[in-house]
Design a protein around this nucleic acid. Sequence first.
DNA 1: GCCGTTTTCGGCCCGACTGTTTTCAGTCG
Length: 567
Amino acid sequence: MNKKIIIRTLEKIALYMELKGENPFKVSAFRKAAQALELDQRSLDEIDDVTKLKGIGKGTGDVIIDLMENGKSSVLEELQEEVPKGLVPLMKLQGMGGKKIAKLYKELGIDSAESLKQACLDHQIQKLPGFGPKSEDKILKELMEFDSKPGRHPIWKTEEAVEFINGVLSEIKEVSEYSVAGSYRRTKETSKDLDFIVATAQPAVVKEQLLAALPIQETIASGDTKVSVTVEFQDPIDIDFRLVAPEEFVTALHHFTGSKDHNVKMRQLAKSQNKKISEYGVEQEDGTVATFASETDFYAHFGLPFIPPTVREDGRELDLLDDIPQLVELVDIQGDMHMHTTWSDGAHSLTEMIDACRAHNYNYMVITDHSEYLKVANGLTPERLLKQNAEIRELNKKYDDIEVLSGTEMDILPDGSLDFDDSVLEQLDFVIASIHSSFQQPQEQIMARLLTAMKNPHVDMIAHPTGRIVGQRGGYDPDMEQLLDWAKEYGKIVELNASPYRLDLAVEHLEMAQEKGVPVAINTDAHAIEQLDVMAIGVRHAQKAWLKKDNVVNTWPLEKLKEYLKK
DNA sequence: GCCGTTTTCGGCCCGACTGTTTTCAGTCG
């Protein structure tokens, strides 16, 4: 039995219990059990007694045993008989939870989105105790927009909204401090909505100016301290603003940065120290409330080091405090090993890219224009590549603050062959192999192509190994376990492409790479000098996978890197 | 349903907002 299936089943049971209107603590017990399994690195076979895990007891343990022995869960089956399947999607409706849905089912026999809609039209909903005309209108409106509302927004779309709002907030003089919070601050690759913390002594004034400055489609909530709106950018996106007093800024920022799991852990820790955390401060045993000048001070108050937002996810971070100083940071990055120039499809010349990298204080950089096959990107023929190579060698002599290495981003062709001969490749300092075509091939064929690149002794790195675009396309679906095993066997580097469009490898695959001892390079794949800045996003994405700087090759000094590439 | 050197029973993170109420339940983050 697959561990993932067990985790999903426990979560499903929790969901169905919620739809039944079950005791919320019982519901969360099943979610906690699922999480306990997920956080345990061991496979199912390696765990001899699941009930020994914290959070798994008799009830949830029996479900797991039932699943392992019979391949199904009788608990879930009974729930599914009791609770109509059509209720599940109703949980996605804004303002609807298990209790309300259970009531609708019990009182009116509503068992699907369709029957709910009809009940609204017949004005049956407002007759129910606890519901009213407003609820009925809201549900109907939500149901109409059901399919058109986008789910999660990829980071490359939200970036624009964040910059715009930062601009607005910086213009309001009553705002003393502000910051984006939530999953965006944690550098999740997608966000459901955006959260901003705004410190001000005059919340009413700020609220008014803020609402006036945004292209608001709809106001979801508008209280004294919390304003929720849907704003029209490329796509409509929900934004929460929290208006807090200046002294509360840090605790509010921490609270709304989350994650939820991180906050729960922090509050439990606080409680064990007889303190109480809320967004307004930390209440001490004597009833006084402490506030802080920085998040570093906030963590120090509990005897903790600063925990970066990127790792505030599943609660693991509080058990991995010793690993935090080893995490890769932007200041550790010594060079960028993947970028394009006007020789292929880049916007800036060789010297412009070099100067931009020098401005980033890099010690080295690699020019890696596209290869011949990629005609749309003006890929280099062997002749042009060798000419560029000579030019780079010549240019490199001019700089003593940076080493400019000569490389290529070579296509792995659909038939599995490589775009350049060994006689060409051997003249270069660094060879990237990557796939830009025939994504729809079956996995065996994709893997065969990758294997050719792996086996070529001149290839140093596989770029954007899955070809995905966050929130848009899945990529070519390689067998990642196999790919990483080969990378280990043949001594290849795998890329973390830092472009917010790609973030390829994804977090779970980066974790897998580190576990297997496969080195990672964080590169921008810049096609223009501004894009060199996405290194910061790449580094934060790497932190989410707990990548240590020693496992990131472009934190290494040039000599160490050269030594490694020789092998 | 899970957990426990303060507890085998009574907690389980905490607070804002809405829409329903006339003091509060449900939902959300």
